[in-house]
Design a protein around this nucleic acid. Structure first.
Lengths: 143, 143
DNA sequence: TCCTGATGCTTCAGTAACTGAAACAACCAT
DNA sequence: ATGGTTGTTTCAGTTACTGAAGCATCAGGA
């Protein structure tokens, strides 16, 4: 009963691959419309929710902290992000979006077509169904 | 009737974002287990289906041809890919996997857990449903 | 046949993303 | 205070990527 590579599963995986590719395309496109790289857009998006220490950003993005230094440098030199001291720990630097950074992050979210265009082909019932299937798949289903 | 940012849609988009992130993680991980970068793995995967001119690889990966030169260079220097002349057009070079390249591509496919692990949480009926929803969403539904 | 323009690949310069090691400051427990 | 740990940066080195320039080849006319 081990469906090593049954036809249906392969088809679904292929579809997910297509979704991933399209999502990426759109994300990079939206980012470059605001003169950001994908990595910069991801960091800015994270920070727009909440200022974070460098180290946490690296954890979220699953990369080395030394990498984040450079990305935040570039965002900072463009006035989208600033580094603040952490009052609780003087080793830590908190990266926080500036007002302009927040505006850019907002605009970025808005230009992400992926939210609207492909999903608009589904009815509300179908969207709910899709949501539940994805939750089960990801193991994040509420019990 | 423009669901600008209705709650359900946002939730689904978030879930898709999670799927995308997890897919990428696994892909990069699988690639690095074979000492390949993500880009190299993608090119090798493409070629394992069929040898291709540089130009076509660039189109598929949506990047500049000059970029592909470097990636294929690295694959070639590791003996996974070779460049052959195209008998029909002497300008063209076909990139084709070597035997070892084919074996590596095969092993890579095998170590892609994403195919099995998350989907195994769904029943056959659910998988079929998911397939249909994704097809409709991507606009590739068979009418 | 000889131009001429388009096409396919590479080379080059320049930037961004990334890793891993080393350095430094500040933290924390003894 | 000592010493180990942690957070950030710096540095060297690799890969991925773009855009411009160059070279060879092709394909269509005059």
């Amino acid at each position: 009963m081990t469906p090593r590579a049954d036809h249906l599963t392969v088809e679904v995986v292929d579809l997910i691959g297509t979704v991933v590719a399209r999502y990426h395309e759109e994300y990079e496109h939206a980012a470059s419309q605001h003169s950001l790289t994908g990595a910069q857009a991801r960091v800015l998006g994270l920070l727009s929710a909440e200022p974070l220490p460098m180290r946490r950003i690296a954890q979220r993005l699953k990369c080395e902290p030394s990498n984040i230094t450079g990305i935040v440098d570039r965002l900072e030199s463009r006035g989208l992000v600033e580094r603040r001291p952490d009052p609780a720990d003087r080793r830590v630097k908190l990266a926080a979006p500036t007002d302009e950074g927040r505006r850019t992050a907002e605009a970025l979210r808005g230009s992400l077509h992926f939210a609207r265009e492909p999903l608009s082909r589904l009815t509300v019932t179908e969207r709910t169904l899709l949501k539940e299937l994805l939750q089960r798949m990801l193991g994040t289903a509420p019990e």
